[in-house]
């Protein structure tokens, strides 16, 4: 789906985002950061879940491993963020590759359960690893940054750049040779193989990119919260949002997770302030059930249906006109 020229829109979004950090107060970057974090997670989830047709319940595991990569690096040498982010991508990409290799023979619900189990195993490992603070957790002390209004403004801008990069990558995959192969796998894996599609290799690319992207989403998290412990890093809401946002937006294209994340993310940030943060899971749950039951193709699917309907009406009208003429 090509709505507007992608790159000009992305560049404009980035410039506006940077400018906004000088005009709005701290609260908005914090909220904005969390929305963008959800957007990256949703986009990553959708590469495997939407494009390839494998449902991953273990998103929190990849996210947390990105965060813990940062904690390890911080504890060891405290490198700059431009080292931390690629490192998290590599660690979690490899994790995705390994997990894919072990679990991709499973289909449907068995694959989903395997990914969930993987996240639980990883959490147990982190709880018992003293170096990263174990169950107690670890503190990250951030330093002041030049140019930006605050450290959170800086993280927000970084996250914006990462989100744009993630969406661009998902969009590229969506319309590439790889994306067409993934769609064939999603529709029918045996038929795809027999049509010449190297299904195992494409699925591994899919899990690797997904893992790397989720790792990137988690890499900045320790700097954002300045204190990481396993329960919040492996949080249920992260995993649930990563599934709910694409489902609500629509899973068949790269646009769906973006729409779903902006919508659901904003609603969640709004209720957090105006009602209560306890309500978030409930809201996700209700929206998710509603969409799965009433609009399984998500908002993008509804929009496509509406577009087709108006086109039909227009053609009908034109047909009536020529009949009366």
């Amino acid at each position: 789906m090509r709505i507007a020229p992608f790159w000009p829109l992305a560049a404009a979004t980035f410039v506006i985002g940077v400018a906004a950090t000088f005009y709005f107060n701290e609260y908005y970057f914090v909220a904005g950061y969390l929305v963008l974090q959800g957007l990256i997670m949703a986009t990553a989830w959708n590469i495997l879940g939407g494009f390839t047709g494998y449902v991953n319940f273990g998103s929190a595991g990849f996210f947390a491993m990105g965060a813990y990569t940062s904690v390890v690096l911080y504890t060891a040498i405290n490198p700059p963020l431009f080292v931390v982010i690629p490192a998290a991508a590599v660690v979690c990409g490899l994790l995705g590759l390994g997990a894919g290799y072990l679990t991709l023979r499973l289909r449907g619900v068995y694959f989903a359960i395997a990914t969930l189990a993987m996240a639980i195993v990883l959490e147990t490992l982190m709880v018992n690893w003293e170096y990263v603070g174990g169950a107690i957790g670890a503190f990250i002390i951030t330093e002041d940054v030049p140019f930006f209004a605050s450290y959170n403004a800086y993280l927000f801008v970084l996250m914006l750049a990462l989100a744009i990069g993630s969406v661009a990558l998902a969009r590229y995959l969506n319309f590439s040779r790889i994306g067409r192969g993934l769609a064939a796998i999603r529709d029918d894996e045996v038929a795809a193989e027999c049509a010449g599609v190297p299904t195992l290799r494409l699925k591994l690319i899919s899990t690797t990119v997904m893992g790397a992207m989720m790792g990137v989403a988690g890499a900045l998290y320790p700097y954002f919260v300045t204190f990481v412990e396993p329960v919040s890093a492996f949080s249920l809401i992260v995993a649930v949002n990563a599934i709910a946002m694409p489902m609500i937006g629509g899973t068949s294209t790269w646009v769906g997770p973006v729409i779903g994340a902006l919508l659901l993310g904003s609603v969640q940030e709004w209720t957090k302030v105006n009602i209560s943060s306890e309500l978030n899971l409930l809201i996700v749950g209700v929206l998710l059930v509603g969409f799965v039951a009433l609009a399984p193709q998500g908002i993008v699917g509804l929009a496509q249906k509406f577009a087709a309907w108006t086109r039909e009406q227009r053609e009908k009208r034109r047909g009536d006109d020529s009949a009366t003429a």
């Binding site: 040779r177 067409r180 192969g181 769609a183 064939a184 999603r186 529709d187 029918d188 045996v190 038929a191 795809a192 027999c194 049509a195 010449g196 599609v197 190297p198 068949s252």
Partner: peptide
């Protein structure tokens, strides 16, 4: 070696034309 399936297994999210484009792209 190419085969058809006795019980049809179309790539059902794609159009008929796109179905053919998969082997045209991947088996070529």
């Amino acid at each position: 070696i190419a085969r058809s399936f006795q019980l049809p297994r179309p790539f059902s999210s794609m159009t008929v034309l796109e179905n053919l484009c998969i082997p045209l792209e991947y088996a070529a």
